[in-house]
């Protein structure tokens, strides 16, 4: 049984839970889910999802309870993680609040990219489009989404939109600037379950 924690401070938590359950059914891989609110919730976790929401709110709340530091330690120790939108910002090594602002570190700075908050603009600039992932079309929903401006060469780009990486993988870390949890396609959540499965039992063919 894979035990997956969803950072539960704020945001689209339930949508990720539903997408993970649907992916688990499709792959026939049993999972258990827990919302991560307190450091002790990280006990025995095999993978962490960092949902979309407001990254600034998550940081302020998580700092108060030591939750951010605990999640940071867990991810830095190699636990697979999947961040969408705000989650992508938190996982980035270099974050820009605006085009002209200084670069700062994300809360869990493991992915070697530079990311710009609200890169496309405000809600009226939010959009959906079809992107290509593993040669399959995927409905990508961008909501006040960030833009990945630069990607270092040990990061694998899984798909591009307008010449910018919108979903990337670096080792056990998966990051998308759009919201796969809002699409009716569990492809990317299946991919994350496979990453976790390979991390937990590298020789098990079920996760290939």
């Amino acid at each position: 049984m894979l035990k997956i924690g969803i950072l539960g401070l704020q945001g689209a938590i339930e949508e990720h839970e539903n997408a993970l359950l649907s992916a688990s059914k499709a792959l026939n891989v049993p999972i258990s889910l827990i919302r991560l609110l307190n450091p002790e919730d990280l006990e025995g976790i095999h993978g962490i999802v960092i949902p979309g929401g407001e990254s600034s709110a998550m940081i302020l709340i998580g700092n108060k309870t030591g939750m951010l530091q605990a999640v940071k330690n867990k991810i830095e120790s190699g636990t697979p993680a999947f961040g969408t939108c705000a989650g992508a910002i938190l996982l980035s090594k270099r974050v820009r609040r605006t085009l002209n602002s200084e670069v700062s570190e994300g809360a869990f700075p493991v992915v070697d990219i530079e990311i710009l908050r609200n890169g496309y603009g405000r809600q009226r600039d939010s959009f959906s489009t079809v992107i290509n992932i593993e040669d399959k079309p995927f409905e990508a929903i961008f909501i006040r989404a960030p833009i990945i401006n630069t990607v270092s060469n040990h990061v694998e780009i899984l798909s591009l939109y307008q010449d910018k990486a919108v979903i990337i993988q670096q080792g056990n870390i998966l990051v998308s600037t759009f919201h796969p949890e809002l699409s009716n396609d569990n492809l990317i959540h299946r991919k994350f379950l496979q990453i976790i499965g390979n991390f937990v039992s590298p020789n098990n063919d079920n996760y290939k």
Partner: peptide
């Protein structure tokens, strides 16, 4: 696509628990 129902309801999803 801009301004779809998915995008509008999706925005509200992102402020949940806040």
């Amino acid at each position: 696509q801009l301004g779809s129902t998915t995008l509008k309801r999706g925005f509200a999803n992102m402020v949940k628990h806040g």
